[in-house]
Amino acid sequence: MDSKITDTASAAAIADGIKSHIQRGGYAPGQRLIEIDLAEQFAVGRGRIREAFKTLVGEGYLEFIKNRGVYVRRFSRAEILEMGRVREVLEGLSARLAAERELTPEQRQVLTEHQDRLNDAEAHNDVDRYNLENFQYHATICTIAGNRHVEQSLARVRLPLYRLQLPRSFSSDSMVNSNRDHQVITSSILAGKPDAAEAAMRAHVHAGNQHVIRLAEEHFR
């Protein structure tokens, strides 16, 4: 957790800190968050923690269970697949928009560097690092696409929580197949081929949805 956050921090800044901690795996899906503990960690009043909780419940990161408290949200198979179907369309559109743009040298460099880091994680069989780079890679493409409506919509369905919920389900073979998709997507965007970029991205997300369908029920308990 960011120790630099003090009692001058807004509820939004605290929500961002909690969200970042969740994304890094600091809090596990299904874990209860204790208001007084977080107030001490952030050095703020409990009221501000409650405001942050409200924000994160609205964004889908947390859930409030009556008479029990606030928990990091766990997703059912159906919920993950619903998000996946929407992601398939939005991620595809994001890749198309990125490929349609006249990329700046800086944008080309950033995208290439992301792909290089994915390649390196694959080469070292580092699934954890690959998952982190994967999230950043998709976010970068969305930023390059430059459409705030797509970006805002994707933020609601690109929650990394289900990746944290299903850590045992993503194998080395899955990583290899995933990165082959990324390489096609990256090359299509850099070459300015919108149709190819969108098709590759949609196929990539669809493959992830099929993976979720095949998982054993134990992953969703």
Results as ranks from 00 to 15, higher is better:
Leu81Asp: 06
Gln23Asn: 14
Ile36Gln: 14
Glu102Ile: 12
Leu62His: 14
Gly84Val: 02
Gly92Asp: 02
Val89His: 07
Met201Lys: 10
Gln107Cys: 06
Arg168Asp: 13
Leu166Ser: 10
Asp128Cys: 08
His219Lys: 07
Asn179Phe: 00
Ile141Asp: 00
Ala9Gln: 04
Val57Phe: 09
Tyr162Gln: 13
Thr143Asp: 00
Ile18Ala: 10
Leu159His: 07
Ala199Asn: 12
Asp7Met: 08
Thr112Arg: 13
Glu51Val: 02
Gly47Asp: 12
His219Trp: 11
Phe75Cys: 07
Asp16His: 09
Arg85Lys: 12
Ala207Cys: 05
Ile65Arg: 15
Lys19Cys: 08
Asp37Phe: 11
Ser178Arg: 07
Gly192Leu: 05
His219Phe: 14
Val57Gln: 12
Gln152Cys: 01
Arg214Ser: 15
Thr143Met: 02
Glu217Asp: 15
Asn179Gly: 01
Arg108Glu: 13
Ala43Trp: 07
Lys193Phe: 06
Leu159Ala: 06
Ala11Phe: 04
Leu154Glu: 01
His182Lys: 05
Arg32Cys: 08
His182Arg: 10
Gln210Lys: 13
Ser188Trp: 02
Phe135Cys: 04
Leu166Asp: 09
Asp120Pro: 01
Ile14Cys: 10
Ala52Tyr: 14
Val212Glu: 02
Val89Asn: 02
Val212Leu: 01
Thr6Asn: 13
Lys66Asn: 15
Asn209Phe: 04
His211Trp: 12
Glu133Tyr: 13
Tyr71Gln: 11
Leu103His: 12
Val89Ala: 06
Asn177Val: 09
Asn179Val: 08
Gln41Ser: 13
Arg108Ser: 11
Val44His: 08
Glu59Asp: 14
Leu111Ala: 07
Asn147Trp: 03
Ala200Ile: 01
Gly60Ile: 10
Leu81Met: 11
Ser20Val: 07
Gly92Gln: 03
Ala123Thr: 06
Gly60Val: 12
Arg202Ile: 00
Arg74Met: 15
His124Gln: 10
Ser94His: 03
Gly25Ser: 09
Ser10Leu: 06
Asn119Phe: 02
Tyr137Met: 03
Ala11Cys: 00
Ala99Gln: 01
Ile65Asn: 15
Arg156Gly: 00
Ala155Leu: 00
Thr55Lys: 14
Asp128His: 15
Thr6Gly: 10
Asp116Cys: 01
Phe42Gln: 13
Ser10Glu: 05
Arg101Val: 04
Leu159Ser: 12
Ser187Asp: 08
Ala15Lys: 09
Asn209Arg: 14
Val212Gln: 03
Ala121Met: 12
Leu215His: 08
Glu82Ile: 11
Glu198Gly: 04
Ser3Cys: 05
Glu35Val: 14
Glu100Ala: 04
Glu40Tyr: 11
Gly47Arg: 11
Ile65Phe: 13
Glu51Arg: 14
Glu106His: 08
Ile5Asp: 04
Arg202Gly: 01
Val150Leu: 05
Val86Gly: 00
Asn125Glu: 14
Asn177Ile: 08
Val205Met: 05
Leu81Arg: 12
Ala139His: 04
Thr6Met: 04
Met175Glu: 03
Glu122Pro: 01
Lys4Trp: 05
Tyr27Pro: 08
Glu102Trp: 13
Gln152Thr: 05
Val57Ser: 11
Tyr27Gln: 05
Gln109Tyr: 12
Gln136Lys: 12
Arg24Pro: 05
His114Trp: 06
Ile49Val: 14
